[in-house]
Design a protein around this nucleic acid. Structure first.
Lengths: 213, 213
DNA sequence: TCCGTTTGTCACTGTATGGTGACATAAATC
DNA sequence: GATTTATGTCACCATACAGTGACAAACGGA
């Protein structure tokens, strides 16, 4: 375990002492732990064990778990930019409906491929501690900015409430992705194979086209 | 605390010994605890504390936490029947769209008013233990039966995938209710006052009418 | 009345957690 | 080279948890 060739090995294995490096190792360990196990059993001891260092360092370098979670949030600030193409995925976005459809499907795929983000969203709806609230604020701010940017001058149709509608649509996508992660099915619909998810994608399109024709 | 007039007081306070009564007290304590605090800190000690008895009785009468959770699931089996009117809320359900709209709005209200069910759904998407799986199966079975019953001979329109669409719609409602519970807002939309929820209800209608005209 | 069973309580083990103070050692500064 | 600081480790505290064996008291039947 504490071999010199071990990735996560700290100075105990003879490596040089480097605050930044170990702080980064702790942050990485925390992110991975959260992505794999969720927010349960997510604590100082587990993170320190995984990072291969003493938990004391978590208190010293991050001021405890709160600070560490904040650091994860900072890492996550660029989540949207990193995995959503700037132009909305491809050209030819003529209508508001085109835009929302493309965004939702992109978001669904990105979320499906990101265990950490899935776990964080579950955490968000599981409790309302200041910790997780700060975590979610960073993400939703960045998302809102990105949407504004990619929307350009496109305007939603009159006579509808695009904010409420989009909230429901995003909620639908998030919930079905999370449910699929946990149970491989939801409301009688299988959520496992690529085909299953294609079916969901088609339904999302239908839903969007129904309200933004 | 252990006064004779205390509701949850057990035989320590002089009450007669009664297995059924204390088992019921334990079950009640567990349900309340789950409804108030969620599945975190939900364990033998906490339940026994709240029920005012020794945790040993939980092992004896329920075989441990697993059995206790199963018992909660049994209690929950009739959830749908108990709070959803048999005829779909009122007459005049002419189309499949009428039906889905009414069902979704009823479901949303019922869910909003039921802390226990909210916590259980969060639990369902948080982990995939056999415990919580059995818990959710009971509920979804009863829901499916009820839907079949209330649907009667009404048929969904051709050319769409009602299962996938309904899964998304149910997911949307569940997610927005859960998010509202946790954070009082979601995707930039306030979720606090009756007016806020009315706005969401309108959007749900729009969404349904878009796919089931 | 006596005796076995049921119901409830207590005390204990082992394990995990969050958190802190004391210490050793490497690195940097003088 | 000597001293001060940064970095990392360790041992320990109080607390909480799940689970178990032993015991006390109430109950019920003979």
């Amino acid at each position: 375990m504490n071999d010199v060739t071990e990735d996560a090995a700290g100075p105990a294995a003879g490596l040089p002492r480097d605050r930044n490096a170990t702080a980064a190792r702790i942050l990485k360990a925390a992110s991975e732990l959260l992505a794999e196990n969720g927010f349960q059993n997510f604590g100082v001891n587990a993170v320190a064990r995984r990072a291969g260092c003493d938990k004391q360092l978590i208190y010293r370098y991050f001021g405890g778990m709160d600070g560490l979670v904040d650091a994860i949030g900072v890492q996550l600030a660029g989540w949207v930019e990193e995995r959503m193409p700037e132009n909305g995925g491809s050209g030819f976005l003529l209508t508001y409906g085109d835009l929302v459809e493309r965004l939702l499907l992109l978001f669904m795929e990105a979320l499906r491929d990101d265990p950490l983000m899935k776990k964080i969203i579950v955490w968000e709806i599981s409790e309302n501690s200041p910790q997780v609230r700060r975590l979610s604020e960073a993400r939703s701010k960045s998302l809102a900015l990105w949407i504004d940017r990619v929307r350009g001058r496109m305007q939603p149709p009159k006579g509808v409430d695009p904010f409420a509608l989009n909230a429901l649509l995003i909620g639908a996508v998030q919930h079905i992705v999370l449910a699929g992660e946990a149970a491989k099915r939801f409301a009688g619909v299988e959520l496992e194979s690529a085909k299953d998810w294609d079916r969901i994608a088609q339904a999302v399109k239908r839903l969007v086209r129904g309200v933004y024709p």
